[in-house]
């Protein structure tokens, strides 16, 4: 039986005190433990950004590569050894801007890996510029008069690109995060999880998300793509639906 301790690293994370990434770190450890995956058979792949340091602080195989490139690396690993449990990580800068092309094509390719994106709507490690998922008009160091681009909709893009498992969770609900993450890892195909998180230093706080976040109800039919598209577009109106949005 795999225990949580097996995944404990002796290294101390350097994220800001109170950062939501600590919750995601625990979520990943719990997911792997509860799915009884031995630490030598898991691989965590990331790129560059605050989130990207996560593999350094979990005691399992890690590959910390370049900005935006975790998906091709993760697919290469899985294609080389299908017995490994491969989880790739991205951020809204890393995954949706720099690695946007890989995201689209990984959805299409449907290699059996999990892709987790830490989506906080701001660049953290470069000290607070607006990102592709910032709402239009966001004022930041690099957008003093407000950002002019429409916010990127990762759920809709994943749907349009043919992903077979699409989910969103909010880091403020850790047990829901673990529940969905386990389903994503167990999914036989490309599983995508967008994690909405605050950035307590540069971005939005929990208060901002409190009224926008909700979990889709039990009657929601995630097997219907048209329904899923409507659900994906809800985030453009201010509400942020969480849970499994689409599964094939």
């Amino acid at each position: 039986m795999v225990t949580l301790e097996e995944y404990n690293s002796t290294e101390k994370p350097t994220w800001c005190p109170g950062c939501a990434d600590y919750t995601i770190l625990t979520t990943i450890k719990k997911t792997l433990t509860e799915l009884n995956i031995e630490s030598h058979n898991a691989v965590l792949v990331s790129g560059v950004g605050c989130f990207a340091k996560l593999p350094y602080w979990i005691k399992t195989n890690g590959f910390v590569g370049l900005h935006g490139r975790s998906l091709p690396v993760a697919q290469g690993i899985k294609l080389a050894n299908e017995d490994l449990t491969v989880i790739a990580f991205g951020g809204d800068g890393d995954g949706y801007s720099e690695g946007g092309n890989h995201f689209i094509h990984a959805c299409r390719r449907n290699v059996n890996i999990t892709y987790v994106v830490h989506n906080n709507g701001v660049f953290g490690l470069t000290t607070g510029q607006y990102s592709s998922t910032s709402t239009m008009g966001t004022k930041s160091k690099s957008s003093p008069r407000g950002s002019i681009e429409v916010s990127f909709n990762p759920i809709a893009v994943a749907l349009a690109s043919g992903a077979t498992f699409i989910a969103r969770v909010y880091v403020g609900n850790p047990s829901h995060c673990v529940d969905i993450m386990k389903k994503a890892v167990q999914h036989n195909g490309f599983a995508f999880v967008d994690i909405i998180q605050p950035c307590i230093t540069f971005g939005k706080n929990h208060e901002y998300y409190k009224d926008k976040i909700y979990i889709v109800d039990e009657k929601y039919d995630w097997s219907d793509k048209s329904t899923a598209f409507l659900k994906a577009l809800e985030s453009d109106t201010g509400k942020i639906p969480c849970g499994i949005i689409y599964k094939k």
Binding site: V45, F63, L66, P72, Q75, L79, A80, L84, N101, H105
Partner: peptide, 26 residues
């Protein structure tokens, strides 16, 4: 032998690196 035509050259080399890390001759 696994052969793949990815979305661009950046994906090509990074896939090859992932495979190499996992033990392939890439």
């Amino acid at each position: 032998l696994t052969v793949i035509q990815p979305e661009d050259e950046i994906a090509a080399i990074n896939m090859a690196l992932g495979a190499s890390y996992a033990g392939s001759r890439a």
